[in-house]
Amino acid sequence: MPDSDLHFSPASAEEAASYKLVELPKELVSLLETAVQNSEPFNLAIKGDPTEDAVLCTNDKTYSIRAVNLSNTLLVVTPPPDTAHDFSDEVVVIRDQVNEILELTPTVPRIQKLVSLLRGREYDETNEDDDEAADPQETLRYTYRQAREEIQASDAELDECLRRKRILNIHNELRPIAPTYLNNVLQLTLNVLVSLSLSHSAASVDRLTGELQREHEVPRVVSLQVLGWFGELSKAGMWKMNVDEVLSELGLGILRDHKQNNPIEKEVFMDKWRDAVGDTFADRVELRLIAGNYLERSSGITDKDTLSYFPASDLPTEPAARFSDLFLTRPRWKVEEISPFLSEIAVDNKERDKLLLKYCRAVNEAGVVWYTARAQYNG
């Protein structure tokens, strides 16, 4: 290895602390190497305003960023700049000193900010005549472009969030669809399938959206997005319905009226749900379709189970606060009961199990494992 003379950069004062070292996980290294080999663009974006912990986003994943101190100082060195004539070829220039690296860890997208920003902007049947884009000077609008820049999520995760949270993109303005209106559109869609003798696994998109607009005044810009949320739109112009997704949303439409202070008998709810989906799909109605959205309680007096609306999406996003709310609601849970309420804060089952270990105590009773609260919660 040739010897080199070390010199500090003439601009060392200005360049101090301007370099950061990021340790890439194996999957990011693989993506980067593939992009270089194929001469393809490789996009990384750091997102977060000054009040937020920054995250790094690829096209489809989000990573939290954590600074880890190094036991030894690393020097960032480069060849002399082309404009520097006072250095020989054997010189390298010290540009900065690094005492930490940035560690990347997969994390769930942070979309609660989006939900808060769109609160009060619901779209329902009163907006059906709004076929022209609103004047941005007349109303406060939050656009898809703004969401891509400001929300701490990859583009793919943001699009999935819009689908899962039922957020419409109307003339580039993001607006959550009102649950009652969404249920009405789905009910009308099922009715149109029957009236036009269309198959739910291969229905013409043009005929469906045209009938919904002509006979029921549902704008195509709305019906197209709803069909995309609840099925597959093919390039050939056909729609294949995701039956479970449609049944789930219709079931939640009934259950939303029955919060904890107004529970509904389980069998009564199931009968109403079957009636809502019609004879074609009645035998596919199961409680698993609405997991993470309800509480089930047994009554020792009437011997009849009741259900109440309890959506995971209304719980805090911070793990400690979420577990606190869960155990205030119910003192102990089985793993299959509590798991659906953790999917939004855990990237996978391994992360979920870590959270259970951190915030819960497992108790085995007659072969059944129950999770109870630990004495204290630490953030």
Score class of each variant (00 low, 15 high):
Asn72Phe: 15
Gly210Trp: 10
Ile177Asp: 01
Pro263Gln: 12
Ala11Arg: 11
Leu102Thr: 02
Val205Ala: 04
Cys360His: 13
Phe341Tyr: 15
Ala375Asp: 15
Ile65Ser: 03
Leu32Asp: 07
Ala16Leu: 06
Ser18Gly: 13
Glu365Asp: 14
Asp49Ala: 00
Asn38Trp: 08
Ser308Leu: 01
Pro331Arg: 02
Leu168Ala: 06
Asp314Ser: 05
Ser88Asn: 05
Trp370Ile: 02
Leu104Ser: 07
Asp135Asn: 15
Arg288Lys: 11
Val243Lys: 15
Glu128Gly: 00
Arg322Pro: 08
Leu31Thr: 02
Met241Gly: 12
Pro81Gln: 01
Phe269Thr: 03
Ser154Pro: 10
Val347Trp: 11
Leu307Val: 01
His216Met: 01
Arg297Leu: 14
Met241Lys: 06
Asp155Gln: 14
Phe42Met: 00
Ile170Asp: 09
Arg164Trp: 03
Ile254Asn: 06
Ile167Val: 11
Asp257Tyr: 12
Thr302Asp: 15
Asp314Trp: 01
Ala291Glu: 15
Val205Trp: 10
Asp244His: 10
Ala11Lys: 06
Glu344Met: 11
Glu90Tyr: 00
Asp244Ala: 05
Val368Trp: 15
Lys350Phe: 14
Tyr294Ser: 00
Glu336Met: 10
Leu224Val: 08
Tyr144Ser: 04
Gly367Val: 12
Glu217Phe: 08
Asp206Thr: 04
Val98Glu: 00
Phe269Gln: 03
Arg332Thr: 04
Gln376Arg: 08
Arg297Met: 14
Ile167Cys: 13
Ala320Met: 03
Leu117Tyr: 10
Glu100Cys: 10
Thr143Val: 01
Lys235His: 11
Glu14Asp: 13
Met238Gly: 04
Leu21Pro: 08
Gln97Ala: 14
Pro136Arg: 00
Tyr63Ser: 05
Leu328Ile: 07
Arg110Ile: 00
